[in-house]
Write a protein that binds this DNA or RNA. Structure first.
Length: 972
RNA sequence: GCUCAAGUGGCGGAAUUGGUAGACGCGCUGGAUUCAAAAUCCAGUUCUUUCGGGAGUGUGGGUUCGAUUCCCACCUUGAGUACCA
């Protein structure tokens, strides 16, 4: 009986689906384990072999955990709101829901054919109203909350109102907008409802604010900072400009400290944590206030170097800073205004591209040094960012590169306040070796001591205090898009009102066009039925808007990260219509135990999700404030592109291709063989003169990798048929008649013709081969190239495995006693497989299987006592063949529920050891010795050995190192 | 510029606490089988060699009886990040 993988795989995939083999129960006496994949965005292109890598790894782990007696939650779903479906809708008029559903169908078929053990009964789609009902619900919870610094958690807005009514906001220590005014209880109680609402908006964790945003005109949307790469949009590479808009924002900055601290409690990859740390950007320093001469105003700055305060020779404000208008002297006004206008025109992109240009203008005003009372000139300069700190800098040119460059450029004095340091060429930025000089009461002190003293002195003056600053900005939460979650929000007199939870979901309205309206409103502005009736609690036609009982609804939609910030919890109880998830479900599943996905989500999804989880924790909804205990980033699978050399004359292709066998790099290797002469003949036949032949050059072009065999040879006929223009192309082959291609590792992409589709692989080699090969390529976390040629190795292994169980006469497994060798092979395999899976070293497990099968084949093992446990070991990796063999061995129940074999150390005990004998650390030969020999006995035997004598060549060894059971090293 | 990761045969990679470098697989070479091919099986495959050996894990140094593994400096590649006061 032969190994018919196609039949077997189809049979078991159907079986698993029909029997719901992998359905996870919320009630179980077993310990739980939650293995999660980052759910895919279902794009129109479908999957290539790089996509399932992480899914295969997590699936192996999930199956392994089931064998180990765990109740495993291993769900899958779709992040199905997003730009590509909407772009397609704009182009074709096709509703994004339709294309999305089609793409999901393709994804599902592709995922199914790889044999994943997903519990599909828990599938979620972010674009499904039954799902986004709860995304809207979380949004409402955020709106109804504020962040209390005293308790260090989110609390209900209703509690804040109670405080305001009783004592105003003077004693409230909250995260709120910078411009929040102080008021007493009398003030509060006298305010109109509108005024009260406006104030509360400054405290809410999601709030509406006029903010400067990254507007991408080409995409018609606002982008988050992490969606911009080098000043252009990550998707499509369109220019991005700064624009003021009223936007929903999330007060994620409230959680900066906890997001940073939480990183120490989770087992996530170091580089990922590092990039979150950078993104949050904590810096410790001081907040200092400088008085302004002839003005009531003050300049607030944040500095990490209060110890250098005596070196401050100027102040710099961001051009957008509020103070600029007020303090600029009449003489400087014209210059300052011209400068502000010029910088406003410069887009973010220009500013990034042009870091070297130093620009700025003097305002004419002076600040006063808090200790020396000397006047300090105030400048504006665009190297100071309005959005960071206070938008103002205490410039200390001797201790900071940018301040130094600015001072040099404008001839501002650079006082030296460092002991024994020359600053004539460059500033001195090293905190660790700083000794302060020329600085009054801090002379001779180091950074730490000086900082402490300066802050104390500033506090005494009431002009400063210690401060921790974070780079993390609040996240804009609005998109001017159609294909996203609608907000459960309507407007009364321009103030946002939440729709009551019990009326959710608010579903996306139909629109004629998916583009922004002519007046520049988001696509939802095209909807004709998009108003909220507060009487009937339904969405009604816009004509009915009277601003008395029927009000306009929000036109923005939520960004991509909204739906992905709560899906991992929703999987625990995905069909619950009453709650986001039941207490029971969350208390059982707790949090994700293992999360696998790409590192590209480091500062997007993974930071926002941590923020939502912390908020949910504060509200008492979840038992952990981190959603995923352990996270692994799978490495990218790269493509192995194939290049062929095309002869060209000038720009003109001669439609003649030359085998890479002739090339070393771009140059010819040889002109001395018959094929070379043949080439000349062909070219002459094409009417190319000998003169032109000398001018001929070559260019490498991509050939589709499906035309290349394992020996890097091109299938010439297939290439000719690829495109009409190649139909009559000529090929100069190597002497042996083969046409070689040049191979290079590049990112897998359509344009490079190196994309490999898993469908093809499953068809030709089977899903089990695909799964094994993806793991066999290398360590999970590393980037590695895909080369289909190598798959014959793992495919051959599966055939060999099959042959252990079957020969031409059928099943050959017997109930005979296993030999000691059989048992030894089995148990060392159990040990290694178990260790490797626990360490997520999936590539080495595959080698271990191969070694085991090679050994058992050589041993001609037919023993059931060996072959049964063996197939359980293999089953997480190659589940289809495992199920089939398991059934053939006589079992009716799925192998998925079989218990993992138990390792017995006693089978591995050796009686002898093949000792490596080293001389000065170099292994020269080995000697087989009994394991229980003493050091002295080993030494005596080794020294008496004739090879030892030959090695020593008459010398007397200085020393003999013996580690029993390991090595012998002879020195001398 | 800064931060992090990684450099091992023709290729992907292995060596888990410092103890036989190159497991396993691809490719390649030779052989068996076949009319032939595919498939399958067997043997070999780091380099070098006077066939005794000798050298060898990016480079240079150090620690050690012994270093791919630990320490220092440098080189290269990849990833992330960037006027953050």
């Amino acid at each position: 009986m032969k190994y018919h993988f196609n039949e077997i795989e189809k049979k078991w995939q159907d079986h698993w689906a029909k029997n719901q083999t992998f359905k996870a129960e919320n009630n179980s006496s077993k310990p739980k384990y939650y293995v999660l994949d980052m759910f895919p965005y279902p794009s129109g292109a479908g999957l290539h072999v790089g996509h399932p890598l992480g899914y295969i790894a997590s699936d192996i782990y999930a199956r392994y955990k089931r064998h180990k007696g765990f109740n495993v939650l291993h769900p899958q779903g779709y992040d199905s709101f997003g730009l590509p479906a909407e772009q397609y809708a704009i182009q074709t008029g096709q509703h994004p829901a339709i294309t999305t559903a089609e793409n999901i169908k393709t994804y599902r078929r592709q995922l199914d054919q790889i044999g994943f053990s997903f519990d599909w009964s828990r599938e979620v789609r972010t674009s499904d109203p039954n799902y986004y009902k709860w995304t809207q619900w979380v949004f409402i919870q955020l709106f109804e909350s504020w962040y209390n610094n005293e308790t260090n958690k989110a609390e209900a807005i209703s509690d804040l109102i109670t405080i305001f009514e009783a004592e105003g906001n003077k004693k409230v220590d909250a995260i709120c907008d910078d411009d929040t005014e102080m008021f007493s209880s009398e003030d509060w109680n006298s305010y109109s409802t509108e005024k009260q609402q406006e104030i509360l908006l400054k405290y809410r964790l999601t709030y509406l604010a006029e903010s400067e945003v990254n507007w991408c005109p080409a995409l018609g949307t606002v982008l988050a900072n992490d969606e911009i790469v080098n000043g252009v949009s990550e998707r499509g590479g369109h220019p991005v400009v700064r624009k003021k808009m009223t936007q929903w924002s999330m007060r994620i900055s409230a959680y900066a400290k906890r997001l940073l601290q939480g990183l120490n409690t989770i087992d996530w990859p170091k580089p990922l944590k590092e990039s979150q740390r950078n993104w949050i950007g904590k810096s410790v320093g001081a907040h200092v206030e400088f008085k302004i001469l002839n003005s009531e105003s003050k300049i607030s700055v944040f500095t990490t170097r209060p110890d250098t305060i005596f070196g401050a020779s100027f102040m710099t404000l961001a051009p957008e800073h509020d103070l600029v208008q007020r303090i600029t002297t009449p003489e400087q006004k014209a210059q300052v205004e011209a400068y502000i206008e010029a910088t406003a025109k410069r887009s973010e992109r220009d500013r990034i591209a042009d870091v070297k240009t130093i620009s700025g203008v003097f305002t004419g005003a002076y600040a006063e040094h808090p200790f020396t009372n000397e006047p300090i000139p105030i400048w504006i300069g665009d190297y100071v960012l309005a959005g960071y700190g206070t938008g103002a800098v205490m410039s200390v040119p001797c201790g900071d590169q940018r301040d130094y460059d600015f001072a040099k450029h404008f001839n501002i004095p650079i006082p030296n306040i460092f002991e024994g340091v020359d600053i004539s060429k460059e500033p001195f930025e090293d905190k660790a070796t700083t000794i302060i000089a020329n600085s009054d009461f801090i002379n001779g002190l180091n950074y730490k001591e000086a900082t402490k003293k300066v802050i104390e002195a500033l506090e005494k003056l009431g002009q400063g205090k210690r401060k921790i600053n974070y780079r993390l900005r609040d996240a804009v939460f609005s998109r001017q898009r159609y294909w996203g979650e609608p907000f459960p929000v309507y407007y009364v007199n321009g103030l946002p009102q939440m729709i009551d939870e019990k009326h959710l979901p608010i579903t996306l309205p139909e629109v004629e066009k998916y583009l922004p309206t002519e007046t520049g409103e988001p696509p939802l502005g095209n909807a004709t039925v998009w108003a909220w009736d507060t009487k009937s609690h339904t969405v009604v036609a816009n004509d009915l808007i009277d601003n008395k009982t029927v009000f306009p609804l929000e036109l923005n939609t939520m960004p991509g990260w909204a739906g992905s910030s709560q899906y991992f919890n929703r999987y625990m109880d995905p069909h619950n219509d009453e709650e986001i998830f039941s207490r029971e479900a969350i208390n059982y599943w707790q949090q994700v135990d293992l999360y696998i996905g790409g590192s590209e989500h480091a500062t997007g999804h993974l930071l926002y999700s941590r923020f939502w989880q912390k908020f949910m924790f504060d509200k008492g909804l979840v038992p952990h404030d981190e959603f995923a205990k352990k996270l692994i980033n799978q490495g990218m699978i790269l493509g192995t592109s194939a290049f062929i050399h095309e002869a060209i004359l000038g720009d003109k292709s001669l439609n003649v291709f030359i085998s890479s066998g002739f090339f070393i790099g771009p140059n010819f290797l040889t002109s001395e063989n018959d094929n070379w002469k043949k080439k000349e003949l062909i070219l002459k036949k094409k009417g190319i003169s000998s003169e032109d032949l000398n001018k001929m050059t070559y260019r490498a072009i991509h050939a589709d990798v499906s035309f290349i065999n394992a020996s890097d040879e091109l299938d010439i006929e297939a290439f000719k048929n690829w495109r009409d223009e190649y139909n009559d192309a000529e090929f100069i082959t190597d002497a042996d008649g083969t046409f070689k291609v040049l191979r290079e590792v590049e990112k897998m992409s359509k344009s490079k013709f190196n994309v490999v589709n898993p469908d093809q692989i499953c068809e030709e080699y089977g899903a089990d081969s695909l799964r094994l090969y993806e793991m066999f390529l290398g360590p999970l976390e590393q980037a590695k190239p895909w080369n289909t040629a190598g798959i014959t190795g793992v495919h051959g292994f599966l055939k060999k495995l099959w042959k252990l169980y079957f020969d031409d006469n059928g099943l050959k497994v017997l109930d005979n006693e296993p030999t000691n060798d059989n048992l030894k092979t089995l148990h060392k395999t159990i040990k290694k497989v178990e260790e490797d899976i626990e360490n997520f070293s999936f590539n080495t497990t595959v080698s271990t299987f191969m070694i085991a099968v090679n050994e058992l084949t050589a041993q001609q093992c037919t023993s059931r006592a060996i072959l049964e446990p063996l197939i359980i070991l293999v089953s997480p990796y190659a589940p289809h063949i495992a199920e089939e063999l398991w059934q053939q061995l006589g079992y009716n129940e799925s192998i998925a529920r079989a218990t993992f074999p138990k390792f017995e150390a006693s089978y591995l005990v050796e009686r002898s050891k093949n000792y490596p004998i080293s001389f000065n650390g170099k292994m020269r030969f080995t000697i087989e010795l009994p394991i229980d020999l003493s050091k002295e006995e080993i030494e005596a035997t080794v020294m008496a050995h004739e090879k030892t004598k030959a090695q020593l060549d008459g010398r007397t060894p200085k020393k003999v190192i013996i580690v029993p059971g390991k090595i012998v090293n002879i020195v001398g």
